[in-house]
Design a protein around this nucleic acid. Structure first.
Lengths: 227, 227
DNA sequence: TGCGTGGTTATTGTATACAAAACGCGCTCG
DNA sequence: CGAGCGCGTTTTGTATACAATAACCACGCA
């Protein structure tokens, strides 16, 4: 995209990621313009993108806030992501070229290396993880699917990345990726879908655990409901 | 949203819907500003929304065109919509209030009336159809799901509404809705999902038939001017 | 004291002017 | 005759000024 609005987008994201502003806090376009060093026009463009990703939200009267995702929000997001990304895995299994599979292997080697460092290099892990999923989405060859997933995937990362990941979680993630590659290499769409499903569902639980360790000591999850 | 950009959005949509511009044709922001009667700023906002919906697309060098959906594009869209809207139907079946079910019945009565006119009132049909699906999405109580579906649903309508609908197609659609209401009244998520699935898949075929009488048509479309 | 009300400030929305980038055309040069 | 290049024009991108609207605060009145 355009230079300034891209920069604004990246800078605002980085700013949120840095933890400098808390969830629920108000932001103003002027503020963001100052932070990003561009005028309000491209800032508004960037803000729109972040609104689409539900990283930022507007009040009923158009005031701008950092989104505050509840556990339910996160579950919803992971449910949708699972639905779409399982579909993507299935399609990818039928379409991935040998080169793309090799690329996935390479990316996952890098991811594994990042995980096995001590301490694990979380930033590198996240980068590799994103790259991995991007290859799959690319191979799924469904532009709209890719567009929808992009929206879903980025938001929670931005909003919650301050949190810590345990090394065992990261290792399991790497193993999931290995098995996905195996499913792809076998050209088995059902296998790929299944692995992707459990991968994401586990990721949700890992994520949710960190979000709401529920200070109230009683039952961890009341309020069943949803499906 | 804001007054002017909303108006721009609606006006541009109406303009496309009117068939005044053909798929693949170039548009300029200035042009649209003139048409909508507002300045380029809100036009750009509206254009961005339409880009999100893939009604408008930009070339690699940011020039603006009316999207030209291929049959594959349409199939992709319906596949995704089916995936998401089946999920919505399932959730809605568990959540719809008696009032909402009554509303669906009312909407579908209206839809049926529109269909049974001769000639059928297609605009009224489309309105009722949209209202029907909106109630379901609302009841699914999943904001992100709603957001994603909105994007998917609107585009093909805008791009292809010039086409004619056969009365039998419309009637079948009305029957599907009736069965959906029955599934909802029975609070049967599986039934609701199944009906929604067949409803949308049939809709795809109806739609695709009009777009390209055959998928591997010999010489139907030359040079996809896409961008 | 509680609540409405008016004005003041903060914030978003829109218009316009200008800057940058891309397209197209004609011209030159091989 | 054709290919590449320069320049004017078109189109998009950005900054800034201004308008509209919402939040805030203080004040007065019951």
């Amino acid at each position: 995209m355009s230079r300034a609005s891209d920069q604004a987008y990246a800078t605002i994201r980085a700013h949120l990621l840095s933890g400098a502003v808390k969830a629920g806090e108000q932001l103003t376009e002027d503020q963001l313009a100052q932070i990003t060093g561009v005028s309000r026009t491209p800032v508004r463009e960037a803000v729109r993108r972040l609104e689409d990703e539900l990283v930022l939200v507007r009040s009923d009267t158009k005031r701008l806030f950092v989104a505050d995702w509840s556990r339910d929000d996160i579950e919803e997001m992971f449910t949708l992501r699972q639905m779409l990304e399982c579909h993507a895995a299935e399609r990818a299994a039928k379409r991935l070229t040998r080169e793309q599979i090799a690329a996935l292997e390479q990316v996952n080697r890098d991811l594994t290396a990042a995980v096995e460092q001590s301490p694990p290099d979380v930033v590198r892990f996240l980068d590799a993880n994103r790259a991995f999923h991007e290859v799959i989405i690319e191979a799924a060859d469904s532009p709209r699917l890719g567009q929808l997933l992009t929206r879903l995937v980025e938001a929670p990362v931005v909003l919650r990345t301050a949190r810590t990941y345990s090394q065992s979680d990261l290792r399991q993630s790497a193993r999931d990726h290995d098995e996905l590659v195996a499913a792809f290499a076998a050209r088995d769409p059902d296998w790929a879908r299944a692995v992707m499903g459990s991968h994401l569902r586990r990721a949700f639980h890992t994520f949710a655990k960190a979000v709401g360790p529920r200070s109230d000591g009683a039952a961890s999850d009341k309020d069943g409901g949803d499906a």
